[in-house]
Design a binder for these strands. Structure first.
Lengths: 215, 215
DNA sequence: TAGATTGTTAATCGATTAACAATC
DNA sequence: TAGATTGTTAATCGATTAACAATC
């Protein structure tokens, strides 16, 4: 990569990549920046600029070759690498994650689950090996797990993150509202907070309502 | 509101609001922009600027009164308004949402669940009323439901969104990877895509690896 | 060649950061 | 008053948009 990619660019490239995977399955051969933009709700300028960060690839006048572009983005961002992952917290949300087939389809493998409740580990129905929470650090290290999903209550989130990081985890998807302190720059955190999304939507609705009142 | 709030500002204000709710519960009386910034990992400049969008409220030299500021943000964004919500798709993820206690705690009420599988509706254990998917539009309209969670497979997402919008829904949290076409500007959509988060994290890890190789 | 679409440069726009005057 | 922290203005930074030259 020549230049540092910005976060929004990277995010769009990932979206483009996923779309190209689908297009390839459907047998679509060529696609233009305008078409990609329409499907993903980005401007065509944006699409071309993001793609050209990775070097020239398209054909002037004929758009992009779907397979070629997919491999191009995939190689540049190593998206074809299979990254082992785990789930911490096997309540309703966590066990939904354990059972979700989308991971395997997209090249991720969930190879461990953890919970602090030993009884739960006995009765849970899953093909994924499960372990007590105190073994997180050890298992992550032994199995070289790179990605972790935190699906525990807020009060336990920081401890879970700490154990994962000690084991050498490199990426965390955090479903709890807690901010994960991440002084270690080599660990990346993505936060998913359903309540915060609800709050944002509520605020947007309120702003709409105030606008309509003013009319 | 004097000026249009930017999306990042709005997002930070929501985060500040949630934090202030917690502080109030803990009995903390005053807080400075520096303290807020440290906890939420924003700059103190940012905090002050966001807050001052809503008008002056702090005390020079003494920080902010926790309760006063919380009410101030809450009123400006109508965050105290209880917004009725529903869940479409009662698989593992959807039923986890139905059962999640966080909504009620934060002032949202899930008052309906929907699924296209009639048998599932019979056997599901929940205190929330559940209905077949073809009744979505009608129930949303009758119960004046404002927010909807889409937790169906990708192939069914657009249809679910369409039915919700027909019923007059105003905000959607979309757990599917499908882009919800939303020409109607009065409907807001928040996308939560766990696979996309994994892809983003993978890409970030790959970039790190490339950097380390270069050293 | 003519038509089409890319890749890139330049212009606009907006958000963040820095700095400091205002004020309790 | 002295110390502290807000609110706001100005400066920087970066991303998006627009426009067009390059090229198949």
């Amino acid at each position: 990569m020549k230049k540092e990619l910005s976060t929004p660019s990277l995010s769009r490239l990932c979206a483009i990549y996923e779309l190209l995977v689908d297009f390839e399955k459907k047998g679509i051969k060529r696609v233009s920046s305008t078409e990609l933009g329409k499907t993903l709700a980005f401007g065509s300028h944006n699409i071309r600029k993001d793609i050209s960060y990775l070097g020239e690839i398209g054909s002037y006048g004929a758009g992009y070759d779907v397979g070629k572009l997919r491999r191009h983005i995939g190689n540049a961002l190593c998206l074809t690498k299979k990254r082992p992952a785990c789930v911490v917290g096997l309540g309703r949300l966590g066990s939904a994650m354990l059972a979700y087939k989308g991971f395997e389809e997209k090249g991720y493998s969930i190879i461990a689950g953890f919970d602090s409740d030993i009884n739960l580990l006995d009765i849970i129905k899953t093909t994924v090996p499960v372990y007590p929470a105190h073994e997180i650090t050890e298992i992550v290290r032994i199995k070289k797990i790179e990605l972790g999903i935190i699906a525990v209550p807020a009060s336990a989130a920081k401890d879970a993150a700490h154990k994962l990081i000690l084991g050498g985890i490199r990426g965390i998807v955090n479903f709890s509202p807690e901010v994960i302190p991440c002084d270690d720059k080599s660990v990346h955190v993505a936060n998913i907070d359903i309540i915060k999304e609800f709050t944002m939507l509520s605020a947007l609705l309120s702003i709409d309502e105030q606008k309509n009142m003013a009319l």
